[in-house]
Amino acid sequence: MELFFTLFKASFKREAQYKFDFFVNILGNFLGLFADFLIIALILIRFQNIAGWQLHQVALMYAIIEFGFGVYRLIGEGFNRFEELILSGKFDTLLLRPVPVLVQVMLHKIDLKRLGMVVQAMVVGLWGIQRSTFPNSSFYCYLPLLLLASVIINLEVSIILAAMAFWTGKNKDIIILGHYSTRTAATYPATIYHKLFSHILTLVIPFFTVSYYPLLYYTGKSDNPFYLLTPLFGIITMTLLSSLIWRSGIKRYSSTGT
């Protein structure tokens, strides 16, 4: 834990050196994603609902996913830019230290400008909560867990996609396909998509397990409390999968080098 703070502090100092860029960037990250929400808001103001979901309900889905994504971009930018570590050979120097590589990669860069994303998600989420009525007040206990689950799933998806760089060298485009696009998809109700596509988002890259399914219950669309357990299934499978893939990636790296 002490190490975590040391690494965090180092990253923070580095970031704070370019003050102007830093503050404009926080604002930009706030607005950049907020534009996406504004557009969906405009659509829903005009058309009332999408597949039976009203704007404030979509706002909740959006906020949960984007919060997890924002926190991941904040503390896990090292995974997002993993190909740079591999291509520059800097990954070697991480292997020379007596600390788990995963931790070092994760904290290689704390990207504080992504605070803008996190705040943006919270603003949208708070607005959504204010407008919503929940079947019971357990939502307020459940929400922190759900947000945590969203962070974890986002991190685990990014670990899997980062590990691809062990095989392919470059993986920026795989990340755009496997993470950016799927997380955007998971901010809208599953029923608007083709079945195959929503199955992928439930079982393969299970973002729906933290957004769509739990909210089915809390928006009163279903009274089956089983849906509240879906994040757990998402996390368990992704934890197993990501650690397996990461480990075999490391193994491959140490047998072939760069």
């Binding site: 180092a10 050979g89 120097t93």
Partner: peptide, 26 residues
């Protein structure tokens, strides 16, 4: 280990910061 062609230092930070970081790591 020193790889002459790669740095293990934090590029944007003062030297002492890398040292403190390594103190924590080791």
């Amino acid at each position: 280990v020193v790889f002459g062609q790669k740095t293990q230092m934090w590029w944007d930070l003062p030297v002492i910061d890398t040292y403190q970081l390594l103190r924590g790591i080791y």
